[in-house]
Amino acid sequence: MARLYKHLEIGSSPHVTDGASTDIIMRNVFLALLPVTAFAVYAFGTGAALVIVVATASCVLTEHWLCRWTGKPSTVGDWSVAITGLLYGLILPPDLPLWMVFMGGVFGVAVAKFLFGGLGMNAFNPALVGRAFLQAAFPQPMTHWQLPFAEGRFEDIPSSVLATPFWEPTYDAVTTATPLALMKFEGQFAGSRELMGGLTSGSVGETCGVLILLGGIYLVARNMMNWRIPASIFLTVAAMTWVFQLYDPVTYPGPVFMLFSGGLMLGAVFMATDMVASPITNAGCWLYGLLIGVLVVVIRFWGGMPEGVMYAILLANAVSPHIDNLIQPRVFGTGRGAR
């Protein structure tokens, strides 16, 4: 048990390793996330930087404390919890009070990762669980969006970010609605250039679709991510949206809007591909992506909330062991007819 954390082999047989260990993969994921993070800080200023730092720190510290407390060697060194923390910071609103950021991080790592047995055992993506907890606990601050590229974003810290722990934040910055909320409640569709270039409001790191895609392509090129999952999600969402837009172009937005708005890009590339919580076989990955895509479209179009990527991925996480059960690779040497 104590040595288990050093080895992470996920994939169906044959198990030929190329020497990539957890920390090497994680370091590459970190590299892939760097441009997204830098853009987030550039777009939203000091508030976003503080949110990212506190989010990462809360996850790393929680894991470290819990390991110490239960008498295990600290697993912080494999970088995976740092990546979780960074991703968690990237999916929060940029002016969220830091005490909420901290609480969600502790909850995500402690409940979704540590209680399940640590890395390799978690059924759900810890970053998403932390965010889901905050969404349920503090719905108002979690649906409060700061305008990107605001004046003086590097000099001033938004007052809400530094709110007293357990007290309601006060907002001074100009707020706005996300493209998805505008679509759902106002029937307005943002232009594709704003969406791709990160000129809209949203969570810290979800706005610039192009940079996220570049990060994803880098990981795929280094063979450190299963490209089938995001591909399947994109195809499903695009196909469903296309059909609905043909049917009623006034109510339903086009595929480009759906792909580049909200957390879909970030969720599909960095969240859904969580190696532990996604299926093992390639066919399973296609199915898993299909499920996420359908859920995203259903929640966005007909659900009560404007965004559904988080819940879609968490639900698919829950189903992924069953997908693995359903799709089992044929045992080598046995044919279709063999029993």
Binding site: F133, A136, A137, F138, F166, E168, P169
Partner: peptide
């Protein structure tokens, strides 16, 4: 005044 209530605690979850 100003205590941030945890909505989730009132919900079934």
């Amino acid at each position: 005044d100003g205590f941030q209530t945890w909505t989730v605690m009132v919900l079934p979850s």
